[in-house]
Every structure is written in structure tokens, then in C-alpha cells.
């Protein structure tokens, strides 16, 4: 083990060709950032809507509650966000709309990338602690994203180029939250 080298990254015995490297090796963050920015511009130009994620799940959840006899679309929340969702609510397309297509696209794209890299693998839950923290984190993130009118994609990533001041406020508090989260992570998860 004396001749370990930081350059000696192995891609499997037959995986020396450039295409395989390109598909298998994670791309640098700047490349992902540039691509995401360009694709978001393209999406806006073609569809008239910027990329957003959590709004689609909000509509699904509200649609499920409706099935149970509740009337979430009459709640104050939807009254305040009426212009954004009015058309979808009016046409009863809470389960299938432009946000659903975007979210399915995210899952499909990730699946294709994993399959092309031969890295598709079903994950498992490691233990009750991991599951409990994931669930708690999901609830906090979901609730927070609804309070601020968008998650880190719709509210921040698409908000900054929209010249929305609220996205900058989001950024400040997301940073504070990430700092706190990192402290909690080290304390409780490792």
C-alpha cells in the first residue's frame, strides 16, 4: 500500500476509454451549475415557467387531502397564492400539470444518468435514526419551502435570476440553516 497515489483513480479494469470516464466520473460543481443555469433559461424560453420542484408536491398533497374530503384549496394559504395555482385548481389538474412533468423529468433524468454510468442501485434505510432524521428533515424543509413560497429550486435557484429580492433573503437564511444543520449533523448523525 506504499505507492498509493491521489491520481490513481480506478474506473474498473476495462473502463479506460474517455466515454466511460465521462459517464461514470462525477462532473465538477461548476459544470453542473453552468448546465443547470442554461437549462433553466431554455425552460423559461420554451415553456414560460422557471424550474420549480416543491410546488408540484404541494399540489399532489392537497389533491390527496381532497380525496379524504378536506377542502385545502379553500384554506388561507391557497387564497394568498391564488394567482400561481388558480388555473391548475380550476382545471382539476393537481396531479398532472407542468410541475408534475418537471418532477418526473428530474427522476427520469437521474435514472438515465445512473443507468448510463452503470451505477443504478437500490438504496436501503440504514437504521431508525437515519429514517427518523430524514423524515423530520423532509417535514421541516417542506414546511419551510411553503412558508417562503418555494424551495431551494423555485425560491432560490429560479428566484435569483428572476431578480426577486426574496431569493436573497432565502439565501441568507438557508446559509444560517445549513450552518446549524451541519452542527446538528456532526452531533447526532456520526
Amino acid at each position: 500500500m506504499g505507492n498509493l497515489s491521489s491520481e490513481a483513480v480506478n474506473f474498473g479494469k476495462d473502463g479506460t476509454d474517455a466515454m466511460k470516464r465521462w459517464l461514470k466520473k462525477p462532473w465538477p460543481y461548476w459544470a453542473g451549475g453552468v448546465l443547470l443555469g442554461l437549462l433553466n433559461i431554455l425552460l423559461l424560453a420554451v415553456s414560460g415557467t422557471v424550474w420549480q420542484v416543491s410546488g408540484g408536491y404541494l399540489l399532489w398533497a392537497a389533491g390527496i387531502l381532497e380525496r379524504f374530503g378536506l377542502k385545502p384549496f379553500q384554506w388561507d394559504y391557497f387564497q394568498s397564492f391564488q394567482p400561481r395555482y388558480a388555473e391548475i385548481i380550476a382545471t382539476h389538474s393537481v396531479f398532472f400539470n407542468q410541475y408534475t412533468i418537471l418532477n418526473l423529468g428530474v427522476a427520469a433524468g437521474a435514472l438515465i444518468a445512473a443507468l448510463l454510468a452503470s451505477q443504478f442501485k437500490l438504496g436501503k434505510i440504514k437504521g431508525w435514526k437515519q429514517a427518523a432524521f430524514a423524515l423530520l428533515g423532509g417535514i421541516l424543509m417542506g414546511y419551510g419551502s411553503r412558508l417562503t413560497g418555494g424551495c431551494n429550486i423555485g425560491g432560490f435557484f429560479s428566484g435569483i435570476p428572476s431578480l426577486s429580492l426574496h431569493a436573497w433573503v432565502f439565501w441568507i437564511f438557508a446559509m444560517a440553516g445549513a450552518w446549524l444543520g451541519a452542527k446538528l449533523l456532526i452531533r447526532f448523525m456520526t
Binding site: S5, V9, A117, S118, F120
Partner: peptide, 12 residues
């Protein structure tokens, strides 16, 4: 640190 990364199984 010296480091070496292997992928003995796809995705692992």
C-alpha cells in the same frame, strides 16, 4: 493522506 478509490461492484 494517500488515497485510492476502487469500484469493485457497479455503484459501490
Amino acid at each position: 493522506y494517500s488515497i485510492q478509490i476502487e469500484e469493485p461492484k457497479d455503484g459501490e
